[in-house]
Amino acid sequence: MTNATFHIVASPESWIEQAAVDQLHHTARLDDIDRVVGLPDLHAGRGIAVGAAFWSRSHVYPHLVGSDIGCGMGLWRSALPLRKFRLDAAERKLRGLDAPWSGDVAARLAEAGLAPDLAREALGTIGGGNHFAELLRVETLHGAGDAAVDPAALYIMVHSGSRGLGQTILDGHLARHNVDGLIAGEAACADYLAAHDHAMHWAVLNRELIAERFLDRIGTNGERLLDICHNSVTPHQGGWLHRKGAAPADRGLVVIPGSRGDMTYLVRPRLEQADVALHSLAHGAGRKWSRSEAKDKLVRRFSIADLERTKLGSRVICEDRDLIYEEAPQAYKDIHQVVRDLETAGLIDLVATLRPLLTYKMRRA
């Protein structure tokens, strides 16, 4: 049993539920976990706190990564000038995007070094839960700046993962090992890491295809500015760094979205301070209410039509009655406070703030 160091990056102004802190402490008691860090978006998950990073010098714990291996955020700058974008037209055109992609799936998988039949039916689809694709524009440019950020362009952000593939990998591990850690260098660990890496590559390709489908619907193309995975385990400082809802701070620019009714921040990690938070950053605002709580609290106060428009004037496409309540902006923490905490801790410099125009979650037809 190890005595892990334990740190939460959050100011007194940030609200973090005790259940999430308790989950972090529970994880810190696992054998051979050496460091545990909670980030300002920390919230309780299904046994494991989300918005956290865990480092072990010798073990890999698949359940700390979870079922959606490779889940993350991608950001594209479209070739469509913002002045030519028409919201009504875009809303009408974004249809048929929940059906399987009609392109050459086997070829794209092979190009990515993956088996041509690997989870092929799901490739290019967003999925449910908190996943989405969103059209945005630049609201504010900050001092850190970046030449790739053009305030005259339309942007698309994609949040999705490995769909059922990651779940299958985790289920297989749990059936064989329960929540026991795997010793680095042993065959069982190598097998898990190989499957994990396939799911990571699949998830990156999935976000790429989602972006291509959306851009094609609105009659343009785009250039990827970043793609970051926030559910993963990777080699780090001679050990293994597990991220559960934590964005990497060692791979360039990071996008940190709020809820569908709030701003998104584009930030540059400050590498000189990165080890304070295990080279990790918040991956979003973090939930304030569970999905069931959100529905119970909001269903009598707001109609579905109310939730299809946000306080920022953006629109929401979500034709799942439960999901539109479960993922309402009110269910999430204040993204501005989350980002302030990261900035105060010396972990980031602000590059830009992005305003949502249209958030797509699910459409029946």
Rank of each mutant, 00 (worst) to 15 (best):
V255L: 12
S232N: 13
H236C: 13
S259V: 12
P269M: 12
G239M: 07
H283V: 11
G245P: 06
S280A: 13
L278Q: 01
V233Y: 07
P248K: 04
P257S: 05
A274G: 02
G238W: 04
A282M: 11
P257V: 14
T264Q: 01
L253H: 05
V233L: 12
Q273M: 15
A282H: 01
H236N: 08
H242P: 02
N231P: 07
G252M: 10
G258W: 03
I256L: 10
S259G: 07
A277K: 01
P269S: 08
R251F: 08
T234K: 11
S280R: 02
W240K: 11
A247L: 11
A247C: 08
W240T: 00
S232Y: 10
H283G: 05
V254D: 01
G239V: 13
H279A: 14
G238M: 06
A274Q: 05
K244V: 15
K244G: 09
L266T: 11
D262P: 00
H230E: 03
G252Y: 08
G245F: 10
L271K: 13
P235S: 06
T264N: 01
R251P: 00
R243S: 03
M263C: 11
R268K: 10
C229P: 12
S232H: 11
R260K: 15
G238C: 10
V255W: 00
H283R: 07
Y265M: 03
R251W: 08
L241I: 00
V267Q: 00
M263Q: 10
S232L: 14
W240E: 00
Y265H: 06
G238T: 09
A249Y: 06
P235E: 00
D250L: 14
P269C: 08
L271R: 13
R270K: 14
I256T: 14
A274H: 04
V255H: 02
P269N: 09
T264E: 09
Q237M: 15
G252K: 08
L241H: 00
T264Y: 00
H279N: 14
G238S: 08
Y265C: 03
S259H: 01
G239H: 02
L253C: 04
A247S: 15
Y265K: 05
Q237S: 15
R270C: 15
P257D: 07
G245R: 09
H242F: 06
Q273W: 12
G239E: 08
H236A: 10
R270A: 15
T234A: 11
V254C: 05
P257A: 07
P235V: 05
H236W: 14
V267M: 06
A277G: 10
V267T: 04
V233N: 08
G239A: 12
K244L: 09
G245T: 13
S280N: 05
L241V: 00
A277Q: 03
A247F: 06
